[in-house]
C-alpha cells in the first residue's frame, strides 16, 4: 500500500515522490506540488477535509479526494 498525502497527520512532513496520476490537476503542479519537494500538513479543517499544506513554502489547501493521488514518503524525525 502506497502512502499518500491523505495519510499525513497534522504537523507531519513528507517528501513528494510521484504526481503522475492523471487525476491530479495541472494547477496543483504549477503551485509547486512536484516530486522531490517537501510537504507539511499545516492544518486540517473540521471534519478532516480539506487539508492546508505547506509545499516548499507555497501554502495551499486541497481536498482529500485530490490528496489520495499524490504519493509521498514520510520523513521520520
Amino acid at each position: 500500500m502506497n502512502t499518500t498525502l491523505a495519510d499525513l497527520k497534522k504537523g507531519e512532513s513528507a517528501v513528494i515522490t510521484d504526481v503522475s496520476s492523471i487525476e491530479i490537476p495541472l494547477k496543483l503542479l504549477e503551485m509547486g506540488c512536484l516530486p522531490g519537494n517537501n510537504v507539511q500538513l499545516v492544518q486540517i479543517a473540521p471534519f478532516s477535509d480539506p487539508m492546508y499544506l505547506n509545499i516548499n513554502g507555497s501554502h495551499l489547501a486541497i481536498r482529500k479526494e485530490t490528496a489520495i493521488h499524490v504519493l509521498i514518503e514520510k520523513i521520520n524525525e
Partner: peptide, 10 residues
C-alpha cells in the same frame, strides 16, 4: 470532475 486548489496567502 471536481478539484479544489486554493492558495492560502500571507
Amino acid at each position: 470532475k471536481t478539484f479544489f486548489v486554493v492558495e492560502m496567502p500571507n
